[in-house]
Amino acid sequence: MMHQTVLCGSATVSDGRDVHLRLDGLTKRYGESVAVAALDLAVPKGELVALLGPSGCGKTTTLRMVAGLIKPTNGRIVVGSNDITIMPTYRRDMGLVFQSYALFPHMSVAKNVAFGLEMRSVPKPEIERRVKEALGMVRLEALAERKPRELSGGQQQRVALARALVIRPSILLLDEPLSNLDAKLRDEMRNEIRDIQQSLGITAVFVTHDQVEALSMCDKVVVMQGGKLEQVGTPVDVYEHPASPFVASFVGRTNRLKGTAQGDGSVTIGAMKVLVPGRPGGKVEIMVRPHRMKLVEEGSVEDVAGQEVNRLAGHLKRVTFVGDLLQYSVDVGGAEIVVEAASDHGRGFRIVGTPVAVLWRVEDTMVFGRGA
């Protein structure tokens, strides 16, 4: 179930759940450079939230401030009712999973997982019980005596996750933990991390530049650019109702066309004219997801029943086979539009230069104002 996350104006969210992690005006400056600019965020207990954005957007800096590894320039970090802004890392009751795994190479899997408990002076019988429990959670009981070098990348990542969870942290922080894995392992680990997080009901913050990870794993997505928060919402909200051109283009693939709104629900793009939702004015940028478009033969009367549809004529410029998809690049009045369709055993339009038409529903058009 999706839950609504709000900016930090109160201690609760609209569905009645308590905010567990709150960032109030969190800021980090390095001289004149602003890495994170007055970030406000509230995360309810038990949610998995993604900090999503390109390299240098401030997402890792934010995570490291939450962890206590970087000191904020301004702002507050609150967990429950406790202000932990200046609290040292070892007292924050947080589990960290790093991109590099950071396992001790000379220690066995079991010893790596036990390390945090030993540092907390947990009694040995309790350590043994909790290590066994944590390794069972990530399905590595049989590999407890192996060294990290004897494990695959996916297994090492599971050890790092078990080590973070064994201390039973209040918050789990994950810094691009899947970026070193191949595509198949990333898929498996996405599901495993999500299943474990939900089964434990733990609050987690996940840093990633991969929109698939953010959309498929998380309750909320926090999109960042240039140290600033662009949008916070459920994966569906952020994908279907992006707040800015940056969010629309970063979260999912999209076609972008610049034009001028006519005030009658239409936009002129060079010699072309398309219909858009609402009645925008001035200079605009329209965006349409490639999979929401359809490619048909030129002159075809094929349409979308009961829907207002845009139709632009063009010529097939390029066809790219990507397994489950065919990506068609179409030259439309000098602009390139990409249309995606199921590959259907490789069948489809193939001959470059073929006259075609691109169709899409008016309601699938996103419209944003733009400067001169």
Rank of each mutant, 00 (worst) to 15 (best):
E133D: 13
W360S: 10
N82E: 14
R129I: 08
L181S: 13
H209D: 02
V212Y: 07
V356D: 01
S329A: 12
P123K: 02
Q262Y: 01
G346L: 13
M224H: 04
M293K: 01
D187Q: 13
R17M: 05
L69I: 08
V159R: 13
I77Q: 05
V301R: 15
E230F: 10
G153P: 11
Y328R: 09
L178Y: 06
M287V: 01
M1P: 13
V113S: 03
I196T: 04
Q327E: 15
Y101F: 07
T320Y: 07
L312W: 03
T5W: 02
M224D: 03
R194K: 14
M189R: 11
C8R: 15
E118M: 09
R194Q: 12
G278L: 03
F98V: 06
T365L: 02
S170V: 02
M1I: 05
P44C: 10
M65S: 03
E192F: 13
M87D: 14
A142L: 11
R139T: 07
H291M: 09
F115H: 00
T60H: 07
P355C: 07
R149D: 04
I196P: 05
Y30F: 14
L48I: 15
D344E: 06
D264F: 01
N191A: 12
V301T: 14
R158Y: 10
D331K: 10
D331T: 06
H20L: 08
H291K: 06
P177I: 01
E188L: 07
N310P: 01
K258I: 11
T320V: 07
V284E: 00
C8M: 15
G227N: 06
M272N: 08
I77E: 02
W360D: 10
V288P: 00
K111E: 15
E118V: 09
D18L: 08
D182R: 05
V362H: 05
L200P: 05
D264Y: 08
E192T: 10
A160F: 00
V367D: 03
P245M: 10
R279H: 08
I171S: 10
Y90N: 15
Y328K: 07
V13W: 01
D195M: 11
E188P: 01
